[in-house]
């Protein structure tokens, strides 16, 4: 039997790695992937608690989080394509103004 704290620790480590990635990455798509990593870490926490409490709500939250993540990825990548079309670059340093 794996203790609950191990799952939470793994989740914390993954979340921190994702947060650091958002800080240090320059490429929009890489930043996006780091956000997905953080979402996955939170999902692990929810499922671990749900499984240890034997309470289905946490897993339903994860289900909804996955749907929202899918919607977010769709819209976000469309934005990335639109930005790339205008600026020919994915570097966040080149995209520091809202106007063209």
């Amino acid at each position: 039997m794996v203790p609950l704290s191990w799952y939470l620790a793994l989740s914390a480590v993954l979340f921190t790695i994702g947060a650091v990635g958002v800080f240090v990455k320059r490429n929009v798509i890489s930043i996006f992937m780091c956000i997905e990593l953080m979402l996955n870490a939170v999902n692990l926490t929810l499922i671990a608690f749900s499984s240890f409490y034997k309470e289905a709500s946490g897993q339903l939250f994860v289900f909804i989080v996955m749907t929202v993540a899918a919607a977010e990825a769709g819209v976000g990548l469309a934005l990335v394509i639109a930005v790339f079309r205008n600026r020919e670059s994915l570097n966040t340093d080149d995209t520091n103004l809202l106007k063209l």
Binding site: K25, N27, I29, F32, M33, A73, L77, V80, N91
Partner: peptide, 19 residues
């Protein structure tokens, strides 16, 4: 699904190495 979308966009935009 989501990661295929990512890989698809990366290949579509032909992203080179991060400078």
């Amino acid at each position: 699904a989501i990661m295929v979308l990512f890989v698809f966009v990366i290949m579509l935009l032909n992203v080179r190495k991060e400078e």
